[in-house]
């Protein structure tokens, strides 16, 4: 089986996982949630295998110039899907709040679909500037950070949906319908914070490894190119989020909105800069 087929299976599994999570919201049946998680996990295994296979294929196609599959837009997007599901599964280990899957899996699924529909999956040799181990560290840390922000954004959306309803309700009345399987607002708020707390140091590391790489390749660790600047913008937003939270008690709604804005900026940093702005970065146009 080649990596393309493995990626197809991954996409199908993520799609099935997402549909099952939606079914869980509708049926409130815990078995459905369990199956959804299982399917997602299987998809994750295929995603992992596909990345490994692509790595192996790069050696078959390019001989000794093979490399980790983290060098063009296609590879970064499928890796992004992988990191999102990884972070979801880690958070699931701790919180066992499966409803979160319904709001996180769409990000992973759209990444996979986007990569397969619009992006060039060719394995091309690397231009000299990209031949650096720093590139690998840089991509891994950045994307783990982005994925944590995606999860934070997903639970923030859940929070905003739920809190609106909750406030309309009287006292201890039990929630009915879809919302009853949502984790409590307190837990959603906590997951939002934790995910950002995981993502922020990873983004910091991503920016630092990027700077180290630029310094090796060009002799400037920072040159204010649009990609660098946007990653700093994202960093400022989440730094503001964290400070607002632990020093001014910004929790709940405002934290959720800031988290959504932060992820919008993250997406712009990742895709918008290439599609809308021009820069030095290799992902542009490919």
């Amino acid at each position: 089986m080649d990596s393309g087929q493995l990626f197809n299976i991954t996409t199908i599994a993520y799609f099935a996982g997402m549909v099952l999570f939606f079914a869980y919201l509708a049926t409130k049946n815990r078995t459905v949630a369990f199956v959804a998680n299982l399917v997602t996990f299987v998809g994750f295994l295929f995603n992992t295998a596909a990345l490994g296979m692509r790595w192996y294929e790069s050696y078959q196609i390019l001989g000794e110039d093979g490399r980790a599959p983290l060098t063009n837009l296609y590879e970064s997007v499928v890796f992004f899907a992988w990191t999102i599901v990884l972070i979801y599964l880690l958070i699931d280990l701790k919180y066992k709040q499966r409803a979160v899957g319904a709001f996180v899996m769409p990000f992973a699924l759209f990444s996979m679909l986007g990569a397969q529909m619009w992006l060039n999956a060719g394995i091309d040799p690397l231009v000299p500037a990209l031949q650096s181990n720093w590139l690998t560290y840089h991509v891994i840390t950045c994307f783990l950070g982005y994925a944590a922000f995606a999860v934070a954004c997903g639970v923030s959306i859940m929070y905003l949906i739920k809190i609106g309803k909750e406030e309309k309700q009287e006292g201890n009345e039990q929630m009915t319908g879809l919302l009853s399987v949502f984790p409590s607002c307190r837990i959603l708020d906590d997951i939002n914070y934790r995910a950002i707390m995981i993502g922020f140091p990873l983004l910091t590391l991503g920016i630092i490894t990027g700077a180290a790489w630029a310094n090796y390749a060009w002799g400037t660790y920072w040159s204010w190119d649009p990609k660098e600047t946007w990653s700093l913008i994202v960093w400022f937003i989440y730094a503001a989020f964290l400070h607002a939270r632990f020093t001014r008690g910004w929790v709940g709604r405002r934290a959720a909105w800031l988290s959504i804005i932060g992820f919008a900026a993250t997406l712009f940093c990742y895709l918008g800069v290439n599609l809308v702005l021009s820069g030095l970065h290799s992902y542009g146009g490919s």
Binding site: I163, T247, G249, V251, G252
Partner: peptide, 24 residues
């Protein structure tokens, strides 16, 4: 469980500036 909005639960603050009402 209470909602987390606003000052739903107390955040203990270990640093403050006099202008920060929440902290006061």
């Amino acid at each position: 469980m209470t909602s987390a909005s606003g000052a739903g639960y107390s955040y203990q603050i270990c640093h403050f500036s006099p202008s920060d009402r929440f902290i006061q």
